[in-house]
């Protein structure tokens, strides 16, 4: 009897989880649909009304993250070079180092680390901001002014995040490569021109395209998911719960998308 009770509990728990997953999935689908529907409002929308939101969001997501991104990039670039110089043979490393940096930093770590930093900094902020605005009836007041809130709140954040991530990824790559070069000089001397030449050789336009594609995808995903969780709380005490959920699920999505893109283009 007790065993049956345990089985029953387990089945009920599983059922609840599955139902919660699917209802969450359906809700997110509705949200996406409403965003797409909101694009109909674009014809009524004057882009200038989004200007200050885009500007503010870019400042917070992009400009204010430059220092953090630079430090992380420098450390990661150095780490890659140190590992490479320890594990790979010394001969021919000058021509190999370009491939290694392009392979690891530009293709993978650059976009991924940037997306993670943006999610942790700005994704959580976006979620918390929207949730607070909702609690303060600001979102309702926008609706009452005849403003399409989905478009007005989500759209400028997507634009700002895409632009910020693209800029940050480029800065990340440049700092990581420069940092990697400076650290590599501790172990092996490579003339700067030769280093630059090997990087240019190793880097292809396909890499550039994929980096942009990843930045674009993250730029859409991060604000989209974080805004979704920002709209969810129905009371103030739920705000931290949904903010945390926004960050975790966005990070998970970022990893999945990163793997998918790499799988599609490099395999």
């Amino acid at each position: 009897m007790r065993l049956w009770g345990k089985i029953e509990n387990f089945l009920a728990l599983t059922g609840r989880k599955v139902i919660a997953f699917f209802s969450g999935y359906i809700e997110f689908q509705h949200y996406l649909k409403s965003i797409f529907n909101s694009f109909k409002s674009l014809k009524y929308l004057r882009m200038r009304s989004l200007y200050s939101t885009v500007l503010l969001q870019t400042k917070y997501t992009g400009l204010d993250a430059v220092f953090l991104i630079s430090v992380v990039a420098l450390m990661l670039g150095a780490t890659v070079i140190i590992q490479a110089s320890q594990k790979f043979p010394k001969f021919g490393i000058d021509s190999f180092i370009g491939d290694l940096l392009v392979l690891i930093i530009i293709r993978e770590i650059g976009p991924l680390a940037t997306a993670m930093i943006v999610t942790s900094r700005s994704g959580s902020a976006i979620s918390a901001e929207i949730a607070t605005q909702k609690q303060n009836h600001e979102i309702r007041s926008l609706e009452l002014l005849g403003i399409d809130t989905k478009l007005y709140i989500v759209f400028p954040r997507i634009i700002a995040t895409i632009l910020s991530i693209i800029s940050l990824v480029i800065l990340f790559d440049v700092v990581a490569l420069a940092g990697g070069y400076l650290i590599s000089r501790l172990f092996i001397f490579i003339p700067p021109q030769q280093f630059l030449a090997t990087i240019i050789n190793a880097f292809s336009f396909e890499d550039l395209l994929i980096t942009f594609l990843k930045s674009l995808m993250y730029g859409i995903l991060i604000p989209l998911i974080c805004c979704y969780y920002g709209f969810r709380p129905t009371s103030a005490f739920q705000i931290p719960i949904f903010v945390s959920r926004a960050v975790v699920r966005t990070l998970l999505s970022v990893f999945i998308v990163n793997a998918l893109i790499s799988f599609l283009f490099y395999l």
Partner: peptide, 21 residues
């Protein structure tokens, strides 16, 4: 969408004002 257009002519000053912070 029609409601958004109607609301340009019918403005609602809600309790608490709902200013964008």
């Amino acid at each position: 969408f029609e409601r958004n257009i109607i609301r340009k002519d019918m403005v609602y000053l809600q309790r608490g004002y709902g200013l964008i912070t």
